[in-house]
């Protein structure tokens, strides 16, 4: 605080001549400007004119083609837009085009991708299981098992338990297992997306974000 107000004689500030050299003088304050600056100030240095030749035209065409290709390809990620609820004639064609695009998956070398980006392994498992059910032999086998169980239930009361103790528990196990299998499958089919399967948030990252927001981007 002691140094305050005594800056004039100090070595840091400039001398009168130096200030004058820089264009700062006492008394000659610039007149106050009351009007706003012009909306479109005169441009002193204009940009260089574009030189157009065949090479530049070619590059422009190539660029447009490349962009057009990318916009059509699945690499151009779009959000699913909500419609306004009004049915239009052109909707049919738009939807067709969208379906056509939606079905195409981005063509990547999946071996080079991290596992979480690959088209999910979970869906592969479910299709494998589905195939087992589709097999006519399996269906037959399953029907037989159910039949057996029914008949066993009927005979259980009548027949002496000692005769088939070895057989029944094993069969029952088998059947139970199969039933469980089916339930599991149904669960997976109902799920539709695999969003919930992998998502786990332990809450650690909750505070991180807010801290960083004030710091601005990392340079």
């Amino acid at each position: 605080m002691a140094g305050r107000g005594r800056g004039r004689g100090s070595t840091v500030s400039l001398t009168h001549e130096q200030l004058q050299a820089l264009g700062i003088t006492r008394g000659e304050n610039t007149t106050q400007v009351l009007a706003p600056p012009p909306l479109f100030p005169k441009l002193e240095n204009k940009p260089l004119p574009l030189n157009c030749d065949a090479a530049i035209d070619y590059m422009l065409i190539v660029k447009d083609q490349f962009l057009e290709y990318l916009h059509e390809s699945p690499a151009y990620v779009k959000a699913n837009k909500k419609t306004d609820g009004i049915e239009r004639y052109s909707d049919k064609y738009k939807l067709l085009a969208l379906d056509d695009k939606g079905r195409r998956l981005l063509d990547c070398v999946w071996n080079n991708m991290p596992p979480e980006l690959r088209p999910q392994a979970g869906s592969v498992r479910s299709t494998l299981r589905k195939r087992r059910l589709d097999d006519p032999k399996d269906i037959e086998k399953r029907l037989k098992l159910l039949e057996k169980k029914e008949s066993q239930e009927d005979t259980m009361e009548v027949v002496d338990t000692n005769t088939s103790t070895a057989q029944i528990p094993k069969n029952e196990d088998d059947i139970d297992e199969d039933l469980e299998d089916e339930e599991e499958q149904e669960d997976e089919i109902d799920d539709g997306t695999d969003y919930a399967n992998n998502y786990f948030d332990n809450g650690e990252s909750y505070e991180d974000e807010d801290d960083n927001l004030d710091d601005g981007p990392v340079y």
């Binding site: 690499a75 990620v77 959000a79 991708m113 980006l117 997306t193 998502y199 948030d201 990252s205 974000e209």
Partner: peptide, 23 residues
């Protein structure tokens, strides 16, 4: 997970975007 949080996109959308970027 962090990207989904800060961008507010769904996980599937983020995955698609990352696929494009990596490709």
């Amino acid at each position: 997970v962090m990207i989904t949080k800060s961008t507010g996109l769904t996980r599937l959308q983020v995955i698609e975007c990352l696929r494009t970027l990596l490709k």
